[in-house]
Design a binder for these strands. Structure first.
Length: 433
RNA sequence: GUCCCCAUCGUCUAGCCUGGUCAGGACAAGAGCUUUUCAAGCUCUCGACACCGGUUCAAAUCCGGUUGGGGACACCA
């Protein structure tokens, strides 16, 4: 049975790189029908924060990575100490007192030798132990050092495959030495390439958002983010890009992961998000969008028409980059006083269109049935009678109704705005004699 | 400084293992079409095997070196 783990430290948010590592671990577990274990590495009591823990757990769930078991290193100090003392007894480790400390640290003695690791992604890598210093196992304050806690836990939790970021390659020989000293079997290793920022170098806040929760707040769909992350270092082949996670589980193998570091590209993420937005059920999207609308005071928290919002979401679904765009693009459906883009007004409403607008209002009133088709038919007929091109009137009306030059089809807009609001907004541009 | 990893269009990648298809796709960019806009859709264009040497009839593919990029060297994780 394959057992993999994701081991975040709650000293920061779950970021893009961590999420990709979690994804590959989770996928591998699913692909091999193994177990995905979550281990919280909260040994640093000072830097570990509850809020980060909450954010990490929430983000993992949001992305859809459910775990089979969860452990907290903060609760396992006794286990680490027992192991360190075992090494002390065998003479593999020694104690050392820090200058300004009363208690001793336990240090592992590194014996010169060649250490070979066989990485599932990179093949054989050889290290010389002479380049490695003796390793702290237990610090003077009693907490375990990272590499030690990691090895003790991976062994105790029967981890078969350690899948982690490239930045851990140089930790691997140190850990192999510890496995051997402890008499535990060495797991398989697979080191994933790092995700780089736009300017090369590490992905950092400077190069854009790094926290998964930021992407959630910006209106990205988890499916889109996962799909994008998946293609950063793996390919399903067959020129496929948009791939369902169930399909990915069938095709995934950690051996096929890339070796090359990838640059995080927001443009492509945006494209994926648009693709998923189009596919997603409008009701689900509406439920995500409703809190945003409430927050902006576009709709009251307790009394709104969900079906109406679902209809509006359908209107914009295909043209959104992020869900948050909806509130901005569809604001005219909710605002009493719409904001009219000055440039658009200058371009389309500087000419007096009182006669045309008034006539259109009359035609709307004359309709037996007010719907998209009848509105359009009435408009087309009117334009024909006036002997003008449809677009010379469509653009000005759109600006008068929405304040924008872009948006859904005009007749859909009129229908969902309703007859009264349409007339009211048009009347503002009808000069009274 | 020492050690380690990596190298195909601007970006993500397919192809490399098992040398021989105009090096394929996607994003971005540019052009056009869509007699209602587009940030939607469709079509087309631009665009890469880092460099040098070797092996071979033949190299993106195998080998060596150079250069470039990245990472690690804590009583952080």
């Amino acid at each position: 049975m394959i057992r993999v783990r994701f081991a975040p430290s709650p000293t920061g948010n779950l970021h893009i790189g961590g999420a990709r590592t979690a994804l590959f671990n989770w996928l591998y577990a699913k692909a091999k029908k193994g177990k995905f274990i979550l281990r919280i590495e909260d040994t640093d009591k000072v830097r570990s924060k509850k809020e980060y823990l909450d954010e990490i757990l929430y983000s993992l769930k949001w992305l859809g990575f459910d775990w089979d078991e969860v452990y907290y290193q903060g609760q396992r100090f006794d286990i680490y100490r027992e192991h360190a003392e075992r090494l002390l007894k065998t003479g593999a480790a020694y104690t050392e007192k820090l200058q300004d400390s009363s208690s001793c640290a336990i240090i592992f003695k590194v014996i010169p030798q060649k250490i070979k690791i066989n990485d599932l992604i990179r093949g054989e890598i050889e290290f010389d132990a002479q380049d490695i210093k003796d390793q702290v196992l237990i610090k003077s304050d009693g907490s375990p050092a990272y590499n030690f806690a990691c090895v003790v836990d991976d062994a105790a939790m029967n981890i078969t495959h350690v899948i982690r970021g490239d930045d851990h390659i140089s930790n691997t020989p140190k850990q192999v030495l510890l496995y051997k000293a402890l008499g535990y079997p060495v797991p398989e290793f697979a080191h994933l390439p790092l995700i780089l920022g736009k300017e090369g170098g590490r992905l950092s806040k400077r190069t854009g958002a790094t926290a998964i929760s930021d992407y959630r707040k910006m209106g990205y769909l988890p499916e889109a983010l996962v799909n994008y992350l998946l293609l950063l270092g793996w390919s399903p082949g067959g020129n496929r890009e948009v791939i369902d996670i169930k399909e990915a589980i069938k095709l995934f193998d950690i051996k096929d992961a890339n070796k090359t570091a990838a640059t995080f590209d927001l443009d492509k993420l945006n494209w994926f998000n648009n693709q998923y937005l189009k596919k997603e059920d409008a009701q689900t999207l509406a439920d995500t969008v409703i809190p945003i609308l409430i927050d902006k005071k576009y709709i009251p928290a307790d009394n709104f028409d969900r079906n109406y919002i679902i209809s509006l979401v359908k209107l914009f679904q295909g043209r959104l980059t992020t869900l948050n765009d909806f509130a901005d693009w569809a604001d005219f459906f909710f605002l009493q006083e719409i904001k009219i883009d000055p440039k658009a007004e200058e371009k389309f409403l500087s000419k007096d269109l009182s006669r045309e607008f008034a006539l259109f209002c009359q035609r709307l009133d004359a309709l037996d049935k007010f719907d998209i088709a009848s509105t359009e038919a009435a408009f087309r007929e009117m334009v024909k009678e006036l002997d003008i091109e449809a677009k010379t009137l469509i653009h000005p009306i759109r600006v008068a109704l929405t304040g924008k030059t872009i948006g859904p089809g005009l007749f859909e807009v009129i229908y969902y705005l309703g007859k009264e609001r349409t007339k009211e907004r048009l009347s503002k541009f009808i000069k009274k004699e």
